[in-house]
């Protein structure tokens, strides 16, 4: 049983990892179509993972409702929102889910009039919180903090008309900051992150990193 539970997953990860790493260096048609097919398989498996996430969300809110935990009443709205959207989606404007997705259906209406405005507003709220956090924490106590503060102010002023009204050089300096020192530091970080990602990938392929197997035997 240990063979099925541990050895086979490690072997799958090893075979897939080695095969896909070498595939990159084989400029043959078969190699290219292998990448295409296997990547599509990965997307298909990922499609099933959406149901894993859905189960997890619904289970969490169902538990809240069942145990009457504080704020359990709001969890009903999760089911309401999901239920209505799924029903409209599967109804597919009268063509039902086994036919191609139709345009201008109630499902799309839900997307454009509920999800898009609510999502955009949620993210825009962060503008207030970031401004308030910056007001409380942005203090030029050290040289490094002063550099960070100046860079942030220049980039912000360089992106709005009031910056140009103060000085025509603000947008120019903001662009220079973004394309020279910012780009240099980001490159350094990216190289470090990539070396880390490659090291982790090698650990996964050779079975040293096994966290993805989860707990238990």
């Amino acid at each position: 049983m240990n063979f099925l539970k541990r050895t086979i997953p490690l072997a799958i990860a090893f075979i897939m990892g080695v095969m896909m790493a070498f595939q990159y260096y084989v400029p043959h048609e078969i190699s290219q179509s292998l990448l295409k097919v296997v990547s599509r398989w990965g997307i298909t498996i990922g499609g099933f993972a959406v149901f894993l996430g859905a189960y997890s969300l619904f289970h969490l809110h169902m538990t809240k409702i069942r145990r009457k935990l504080p704020g359990w009443g709001y969890s009903i709205f999760v089911f309401l929102g999901a239920g209505i959207t799924i029903i409209f989606g599967l109804y597919n404007g009268g063509e039902f889910f086994w036919n191609d997705k139709q345009e201008g259906t109630m499902f799309e209406w839900m997307y454009f009039n509920v999800q898009v405005p609510a999502g955009a507003t949620m993210f825009s709220i962060l503008a207030f919180f970031m401004a308030s956090a910056a007001y409380r924490t942005f203090k030029a106590r050290t040289n490094e903090a002063t550099i960070l503060l100046i860079a942030a102010i220049i980039v912000m002023l360089g992106r709005v008309p009031i910056g140009t009204m103060i000085s025509q050089y603000f947008p120019i300096v903001a662009d220079w900051i973004m394309s020279v020192p910012n780009m240099a530091a980001k490159r350094g970080i990216l190289i470090g992150v990539s070396i880390g990602a490659i090291a982790t990938s090698l650990k996964i392929i050779f079975g040293i990193e096994r966290a993805y197997l989860g707990g238990g035997d």
Binding site: F48, L57, A82, I86
Partner: peptide, 22 residues
């Protein structure tokens, strides 16, 4: 907020069906 979470989840389930599983 809870309606938004529900609608977003429902949207992804339906889109997964139409774009991947179907």
């Amino acid at each position: 907020e809870n309606l938004f979470v529900g609608v977003a989840m429902g949207y992804w389930i339906v889109i997964t069906w139409f774009n991947i599983l179907k």
